[in-house]
Every structure is written in structure tokens, then in C-alpha cells.
Nucleic acid binder design. Structure first.
Lengths: 126, 126
DNA sequence: AATATAACGCAACCTTGTTGCATTAACTAA
DNA sequence: TTAGTTAATGCAACAAGGTTGCGTTATATT
């Protein structure tokens, strides 16, 4: 696949992810950019950025897709396996920087691990 | 909420979960029982069984909902937090019996943790 | 057996995400 | 700089998982 052309959509979305370190849901981006880009475009650009190893995606609560910047991934391998934290109060999702030790399970080959931690974020923590 | 009446749907679904220890997706149950029950009924019964602490649910790949039997949960509290394993080859999902140590994160309150491990199960492991 | 009402079936709907196709706009090279 | 190629876009229609409203059925109670 690969991002070949620097279009407005690519530029705007990249800026969005570079300006903060939190994860953003496809849904939120579509709402936010409703007047600028078609949802199809946004889905396609996100797909591509993921293929290129620039973003990674994961599923949050209710099965909706979230995206965040990758660290150290290439288009051939997504190495950036870390937990995500979703605040049950404000809905915010961000990447946690520590890595979780992958358990060894006999006779199984582990390929991916998705760890979603939910609770109250720093802002909503009283 | 609470399951009040012992209907056929409740009976059949409970039997389904008692006869094996793997997780079953709502989707699969609907397909399997298509000629017997309406999908609305199946969704509602699963909801109830979850509320009652008999089943627990989690999201698998593609955001579809899976259910499995609980161990030691009540209608007021779901304590049964363990990882799930989804085989990327045959699609089978089951509960892993070990618990994962919850990390402590400063200034955040952790309430739920969802760990989905994906790879190749015992049967599909070559 | 009569009654109250939880549970059911059906159809219609909602949400997130995808696909086909005609149009537009980046890049390439003359 | 312009002409040509084709990737990227917008639109509309669709798809899948799941939910809702409401009239009907069946379970439990008396």
C-alpha cells in the first residue's frame, strides 16, 4: 500500500496525531472533521497510516477503533505493543509507556497481545 | 434485572455454556440457534446472564462480543478477570486460567482490565 | 382456571465501518 | 508549464453486529 501522495487529508490527520500523544478514535475524527473530509477518506487514510507503521490501532470499549502514533514500527512489522488506558469517566484513551511481559503458554504461539485497562485517568481521579 | 423465569432460551443457552469451557460469540450462538430463537432473544438472555454474574463478556477481534462462564462472580461484582486467547487460525476463543498482575499506575484508578492474546491455539499449533 | 407480567418474535432502526464508481487533484515527465 | 497518469476523494449504497418498540405468548402465582 504505502502513502504515496501528500494530500490535505493526510496532512491534517498527521498533524492531529503529532500535536498530542493521546489516542483518537476514528469516530471522533470523523465527527471533528465532518465539514472538511468525507468519512470514507478518513477511514482510508487511517488504514494507510497504519499499514505504513505510522499509526497503530486497537479496539476500545464498545468495539470502536482507536488510533495512536507508533514508536519504532515499520510497514512490515508492528512492534509497538503496549497497554492502553481508557478513562471510564471522560472517555479519553492514551498509550501507557511500559511493556507487559508476555506470558509463555505451552503449545501456543502468541502473536499479538491487546491489553486495555479501564478506570479513572489523572484528570478524573479525585 | 435478574433472571426470573426459566424459559427455553435460558435453559438452552445455559446448557451451551455448561457443556464446554470455551467462550462463544453472540454471533455464533445466533447462527447456531437461528431456527429456534430470535436473535433479539439471544442478545437479551446473554445480557441477563451477564448481569446475574453467570456469564462474563469481552470483545474479540473485530469488536464482536464473546461470552463465557464466570467463576466466583455475583450479580453485584464481576471479579473474574483473566486473559482470553483467540486463535487467529480457527477463530476459537477460550479463557486462560492464570491471572495477570495488575500494574499500579500513579494517580489513576484501575477498574477493569481486558487482556486479549492472539495467536495459534494448541490444535492449530504446528 | 384466571390473572399478571416477564419474555418473546418481528420489523424497523442505529452505529461503525466498507465498497463501487465517477470525479478530482497530486505527482511525473516532456 | 503544461499534459497525462493514476492515486485519492466524495457520494451513495451497502454490510454486520447489535438495539428498540410494541403487540403477542408463555411462565409463574393465586
Amino acid at each position: 500500500m504505502g502513502v504515496i501522495r501528500k494530500t490535505k487529508a493526510v496532512e491534517v490527520l498527521l498533524k492531529e496525531f503529532n500535536s498530542s500523544s493521546v489516542a483518537i478514535s476514528a469516530k471522533a475524527l470523523i465527527e471533528q472533521l465532518r465539514d472538511t473530509f468525507n468519512k470514507t477518506t478518513i477511514y482510508r487514510v487511517l488504514d494507510k497510516l497504519e499499514d505504513d507503521g505510522i499509526l497503530h490501532s486497537f479496539l476500545g470499549k464498545e468495539g470502536i477503533k482507536w488510533y495512536a502514533k507508533c514508536n519504532g514500527c515499520t510497514s512490515t512489522e508492528h512492534n509497538d505493543v503496549h497497554p492502553h488506558f481508557q478513562c471510564l469517566n471522560c472517555g479519553r484513551v492514551d498509550c501507557l509507556s511500559f511493556t507487559v511481559p508476555l506470558p509463555q503458554i505451552p503449545n501456543r504461539k502468541i502473536e499479538v497481545m491487546q491489553l486495555l485497562i479501564q478506570g479513572r485517568c489523572e484528570e478524573c481521579f479525585v
